[in-house]
């Protein structure tokens, strides 16, 4: 059903990040090598302390890697790329409290130089898509956590990114809201045809959402294993999670993560060979 394209939308090539230098240097990312195909929904999961934050900052052009590169649509990422929108875990800090919901969603479109009419359409559509048409004039802090994260998602999709990067977006909302938002992401992904890279520490979430799950090791990070998720495209919280295949996959990912925690201690620096053999 899916096949690896010749020209992936995103490729991460021998990415490595070391903080500091000399004896005090800390290697956060050992070696990351993978590609993401157009319209794919890929999940990245790892044990806590897997250098996910560092990896995402490199990916989104906020932090320069020590070596290796990130290539988005054939262009090397050297600063925040225009075709990427990022949704962070800290919705209450990434939304601007002095702006209404509408203005928050509109601001990046102004930066993009969209004319007023197009901006209005894009903002209205995006807020409609996340179910917030009636809260446009509210301030973010007047909304619940789940609704605030919906605003952040609306802001990202209104930007019309080629790739939507989500950094543990639902780690701070309650379980019921989380299930709703997971379905929202699947729904938006299918409807808008956007590529999604979803980082989480929640194993079930990664299996439920993704077409493919990359399991990271502890820092210095490399890719332990790639797991293809052979679940049907139509997923829902009850029946999909009850499938034997779902249980099998979550067990597999779980075991890999347990393994990842152990691997750290015997990981000396050159893990590159191992990582390459496991990656795409």
């Amino acid at each position: 059903m899916q096949h690896v394209e010749k020209h992936p939308i995103l490729s991460v090539e021998s990415l490595r990040k070391v903080y500091g230098a000399g004896a005090g240097a800390v290697e956060a990312i050992g070696n990351l090598d993978f590609t993401v195909a157009r319209n794919e929904l890929i999940c990245i999961v790892g044990p806590s302390g897997a250098g996910k934050t560092t990896f995402l900052r490199c990916l989104s052009g906020l932090l320069a890697p020590t070596s290796g590169q990130v290539v988005l649509e054939g262009k090397k990422v050297e600063g925040p790329p225009e075709g990427m929108a990022v949704v962070l875990q800290e919705y209450s800090r990434s939304l601007y409290p002095w702006m209404t919901v509408y203005d928050n969603v509109e601001l990046p479109l102004k930066a993009k130089g969209l004319p007023a009419g197009e901006r209005r359409t894009a903002v209205t559509e995006a807020l409609g898509a996340v179910g917030l048409s009636s809260s446009t004039k509210a301030y973010p802090w007047q909304l619940s956590g789940g609704m605030q994260q919906r605003v952040a998602i609306a802001r990202a999709i209104a930007y019309r990114p080629k790739i939507l990067v989500m950094d543990e977006p639902f780690a701070a909302v309650d379980a019921q809201t989380r299930a709703e938002l997971e379905d929202l992401v699947r729904d938006l992904w299918q409807r808008l045809g956007v590529t999604v890279l979803f980082v989480t520490h929640d194993i079930d979430e990664s299996v439920y959402l993704g077409q493919r799950v990359l399991v990271l090791s502890s820092a210095p990070t490399f890719i332990m294993e790639e797991v293809r998720i052979g679940l049907p495209d139509e997923r829902d919280q009850l029946s999909t999670r009850a499938l034997p295949e779902f249980a099998r996959l979550r067990t597999q990912v779980y075991e890999l993560i347990q393994q990842a925690k152990l691997v750290t201690y015997r990981t000396e620096r050159p893990v590159a060979g191992e990582a390459v053999s496991h990656s795409v």
């Binding site: 906020l62 925040p80 990046p108």
Partner: peptide
């Protein structure tokens, strides 16, 4: 100013004036 707010502005490529 909160670092997350600055990162957000950077990742959406807001111009200096904005």
């Amino acid at each position: 100013i909160d670092g997350v707010q600055i990162d957000t502005a950077r990742s959406y490529s807001l111009r200096r004036r904005q």
